[in-house]
């Protein structure tokens, strides 16, 4: 292993990848701690560190019980969820872009978000609690992508184009379904609940939500991290990739399944948070290049940083919270315009 590192040091891209991975990791750690201090209830940084360490080490409390509740029960789950969702959406976006050889691919390209929204709206309409809303959204999201894959495989011609087309169609079908549910929802309480959920927000996150989301997220992220070299080969033409000795069909299926699980878990936990999955991977491509070995870790770290930052703004900028989905769209849409108008097309 050590020998590999020495060899790789001769190549600039690999060195850059390592450098940015470390920089982003440090940034994330700093932002993570700093985020605990932000908020209407004042907790000094020193106490934050003590409270966090106090969970594992015997430290005599110098803080009030209120501080502990705010840090451990209110801010910690929300910060963790922001990191997890940001990391997953960004990782899924980078993956879909590579698998579909399409720089404009985002995590909802196969209808994962549309499906989740429909499931969540249905659960709200049925009067179920937040726990079931998440479960419904997650299940409905996986079902949608499953349908897209099945239909896409049956289409003639290029399997990738088939899947993208199926994604657009099934996605709009579920969007129509969500619209219908909104139509029949009770406008005094159900309709606003659905609307707020669709906007995407991390408010009111509890430790239970975090652990519920973390399991599928890890199940999806680990295979992606392990397969990250092979995912590069999927960006080649079908014939080239197969001639190189890769079973493209099986690999693509495994990679899409993993990316879909993490997307579904993210959307189910936080609602529609757009643009992260498109914008962050592109920024990372500018930083470390397209090699997935570096692109994936960087996207994960950068995604976590970005969403944590956005969530800090969302909960502190105004007295009433701005849904984070709106904030990310404010940043994402101009960036997309920049991408489209840039002279150099190849990333």
């Amino acid at each position: 292993m050590a020998k590999t590192k020495i060899w790789l040091c001769r190549y600039s891209e690999s060195r850059r990848g390592k450098f940015f991975e470390i920089v982003l990791l440090i940034l994330l750690a700093v932002l993570f701690l700093f985020s605990f201090v932000l908020g209407r209830y004042d907790v000094p940084l020193k106490e934050v560190v003590h409270i966090l360490l106090g969970r594992w080490f015997p430290i005599t409390p110098t803080w009030t019980p209120n501080m502990e509740t705010v840090v451990l029960n209110v801010r910690l789950p929300r910060i963790l969820l922001a990191c997890l969702v940001g990391a997953c959406l960004s990782a899924a976006g980078a993956t879909y872009q590579s698998v579909f050889q399409n720089p404009m691919a985002a995590p909802d390209i196969l209808g994962a978000s549309s499906g989740a929204c429909f499931g969540a709206a249905l659960a709200i309409l049925l009067g179920l609690g937040s726990y079931y809303i998440t479960i419904f959204a997650f299940g409905s999201s996986l079902t949608t992508v499953g349908m897209v894959c099945l239909i896409g495989q049956r289409m003639r011609g290029n399997p990738i184009t088939g899947m993208l087309l199926a994604g657009i169609m099934i996605g709009s079908l579920f969007n129509a379904g969500t619209s219908y549910l909104k139509l029949v929802a009770d406008p005094t309480d159900e309709l606003p609940a659905i609307t707020y959920w669709l906007m995407g927000s991390l408010s009111g996150a509890k430790m239970r939500d975090v652990s519920l989301a973390a399991v599928p997220m890890l199940i999806g992220l680990v295979p992606l991290l392990l397969l990250r070299w092979r995912i590069n080969v999927l960006t080649l033409e079908e014939e080239e990739a197969r001639a190189i000795g890769v079973d493209t069909r099986r690999l693509r299926l495994a990679v899409i399944a993993s990316a879909t699980v993490i997307t579904a878990a993210s959307v189910a936990a936080s609602g529609m948070i757009g643009w992260v999955g498109l914008v962050i991977p592109h920024l990372c491509r500018r930083l470390v290049g397209n090699n997935f070995c570096h692109l994936l870790p960087c996207s994960i770290l950068f995604g976590a940083i970005f969403l944590l930052l956005a969530d800090n703004i969302s909960r502190n900028l105004l007295a009433t919270e701005i849904p984070i989905g709106i904030l990310t769209a404010f940043v994402g849409a101009p960036f997309l315009l920049y991408l489209l108008t840039r002279k150099e097309h190849i990333l």
């Binding site: 891209e13 720089p103 092979r230 190189i244 690999l251 397209n290 090699n291």
Partner: peptide
Amino acid sequence: PTFGYSVLDTVLMGTTHHLSP
């Protein structure tokens, strides 16, 4: 190509079948 890789990475892709997944 949709995504440009460095020349080294492009050539390295040829060695993929020697590696376990």
